[in-house]
Amino acid sequence: MSVRLLVVDDHPVVRAGVRSLLDGSGVEVAGEAESAEQALAAIPDAAPNVVLTAVRLGGVDGIELISRLRANGHAAPVLCFSGHDNPTYVARAMSAGAVGYLLKSASREELLQSIQTAASGDECWTAQERKRHKGPIPTELLRQNLEVTLTKRESEVLKQLAFGLTNKEIANTLGLRYDTVKEHVQHVLRKLAVNDRTQAAVWAVRKGLV
Rank of each mutant, 00 (worst) to 15 (best):
D61H: 10
V185L: 05
L146G: 01
P136D: 12
D10A: 01
V148M: 06
E64W: 00
G17P: 11
M94Y: 01
E140T: 15
Y101G: 04
V185K: 10
F81P: 01
A171W: 10
G100Y: 03
K207H: 14
D61Q: 08
N172T: 12
G59P: 08
L22E: 07
D61I: 05
T139I: 13
V27A: 06
A162M: 10
K159P: 00
Q186A: 15
N167W: 08
F163L: 14
P48I: 10
V27C: 10
T166L: 13
S95G: 07
R132I: 15
S105M: 04
D9E: 08
S105F: 00
S35W: 07
R197D: 12
R206T: 00
L79K: 05
R68V: 00
Y101F: 14
D196L: 07
A47V: 04
V7L: 10
A106T: 12
S105P: 02
K182H: 15
N49Y: 00
A119Y: 04
E156Q: 15
R108N: 10
R177F: 08
G26L: 09
H187V: 06
A106Q: 08
T88H: 01
F163N: 11
V3K: 08
V99A: 01
H184M: 12
Q113E: 15
T166W: 13
A54G: 15
T166C: 09
N72L: 02
G175H: 05
E37N: 03
D10W: 08
A98Q: 07
T198C: 06
F163Y: 11
A75H: 06
